[in-house]
Design a protein around this nucleic acid. Sequence first.
DNA 1: ATTCTTGCAAACCCTTTGCAAGCTA
DNA 2: TAGCTTGCAAAGGGTTTGCAAGAAT
Lengths: 126, 126
Amino acid sequence: MSDALDELADFVSTQELHRILQERGASVSLATTYRIVQSMADDGLLDVLRADDGEARYRRCEAHGHHHHLVCRRCGKAVEIEAPTVEAWASRIAAENGYTALEHTVEIFGLCPECSAAVAAEHSEE
Amino acid sequence: MSDALDELADFVSTQELHRILQERGASVSLATTYRIVQSMADDGLLDVLRADDGEARYRRCEAHGHHHHLVCRRCGKAVEIEAPTVEAWASRIAAENGYTALEHTVEIFGLCPECSAAVAAEHSEE
DNA sequence: ATTCTTGCAAACCCTTTGCAAGCTA
DNA sequence: TAGCTTGCAAAGGGTTTGCAAGAAT
């Protein structure tokens, strides 16, 4: 069930999650995986991120309020970050332009320490 | 051709763009529209944004380097904004966590003045 | 004639959904 | 039994691509 998601520290797509569940022997169909993930996301239990390819990636969300992420684009490892300065900046900018009903996305992508090293190693081999 | 895109001040999906082109009498197929948009995006001529539904939206980019947007989620109208403070903040946060090869997305969504009014009107009618 | 561009339709991928079967209360 | 959960397969929606016809050089 959704218990499995609890262990997920990183962002995974529903398809990846399904694969992981299968590997662990859990008998869950893709459809059900999608259903679980969707309902959890609706309940605000998961953070959602859209990859550049349009695939949605989810992550168990510790935090309660509004926050952002520093995500490794290679392994999905994520660090939750807060950005009070950015929040204020966003509100100000929006107000200056007369925009209302605000929302914003602030995500930083990069390579985590491990993946930075891994990639560097790959390059030196070539 | 791609000339048509020049007039686009706002973010549109490829499908919308195709519809617009058709209405103007241009005979372009959906496939070609996708091809044009994709190549322009590859050349950095367009800004790309992913909607929550996974649809990609493009906008003619004035092309002066890195910048962000304040986008109306109803009509797509966008204002280009700069955020030196945020850039610095992002670099710092990432560095503190040992992340490299950074990239970040900072987009503010809301309702532009016109749409704010329109929505308010709709509500008062109900 | 060679090369690039276009359209069409089929293929892809992620995601959602109808429906019948299995559980649960 | 009434109601919710699940799996399967089909359908949906956006996007890409193989291939043959047409335009450009």
